[in-house]
């Protein structure tokens, strides 16, 4: 077609905006499945206990699963230092202001992990319940943490991070007697968004719920190994 300013053309695209990210995520997931490595994407607000839970998980799992970690933060390498202290191969991605991780960053970071020696890699996403929900990182399973001091209405305010989670971990339950948090309501909200989400109540401090979390991880790892055989 033409108008006074010259030729112009309408082109139908119908392309998902995040398609490029999704393709990389898919490629990464296939690579890890082939290697028999379970990849978990952890989402939460800042300070909900991701790193503390990882420390507890590593301590408890060291004889069953070999753990690696990719840590996303806007600044600092603190989490990296905390996990390295446990002998966990870890890669820190400092996003320099970016509010979420994207699949390409994780794919790059993965080159720095000895995945042939690992059975599970945890991605600690940037502490934020909004944007990380939109970006698949190649994970086999997505876990969203909700710590009890945040209140159960976090699920109502930031539904996307919970809608897309395979499991929701209600953390810091040792604080339940000190804060207002209605566990039943929280579970109801989560299941309204996602009836299949597993909900695990946890305290990394006292160890409450840790066994349930660990058996979920072992179940997921088995699931990934079975995918290889198919």
């Amino acid at each position: 077609m033409a108008n006074a300013e010259g030729q112009w053309k309408q082109v139908l695209m119908l392309e998902r905006l995040l398609q490029a990210n999704e393709l990389i995520a898919e490629r990464l997931r296939e690579r890890l499945t082939d290697a028999g490595v379970l990849l978990i994407n952890m989402l939460s607000s800042p300070g909900s206990g991701k790193t503390t839970l990882l420390e507890a998980t590593v301590k408890a799992l060291s004889d069953k699963l070999r753990v690696g970690a990719i840590l996303g933060d806007v600044a600092t390498e603190r989490d990296y230092e905390r996990l390295s202290a446990y002998g966990v191969p870890a890669v820190q991605i400092v996003t320099g202001g970016e509010c979420h991780l994207e699949a390409a960053m994780v794919e790059q970071a993965m080159h720095r992990l000895p995945i042939e020696n690992l059975s599970v890699v945890f991605i600690e996403n940037v502490g934020n319940l909004v944007c990380p929900a939109e970006f698949r990182l190649g994970e086999h399973f997505r876990v969203t943490l909700l710590s009890v001091p945040e209140g159960e209405d976090k699920v109502l305010k930031y539904p996307h991070a919970f809608r897309t989670a395979d499991a929701v971990l209600i953390t810091k339950v040792d604080l339940l007697e000190h804060v207002r948090f209605n566990v039943e309501l929280a579970e109801g909200y989560i299941h309204s968004l996602n009836p299949n989400a597993r909900v695990v109540k946890l305290s990394a401090l006292t160890g409450y719920g840790l066994d349930e979390w660990l058996s979920l991880l072992l179940e997921w790892h088995k699931d990934v190994l079975q995918r290889v055989e198919l």
Binding site: A2, E5, G6, Q7, W8, K9, Q10, V11, L12, M13, L14, E15, R16, L17, L18
Partner: peptide, 11 residues
């Protein structure tokens, strides 16, 4: 979020 269509200046 879907990119549906673009209009391009070609000439």
């Amino acid at each position: 979020v879907i990119v549906e269509q673009v209009e391009l200046k070609v000439g």
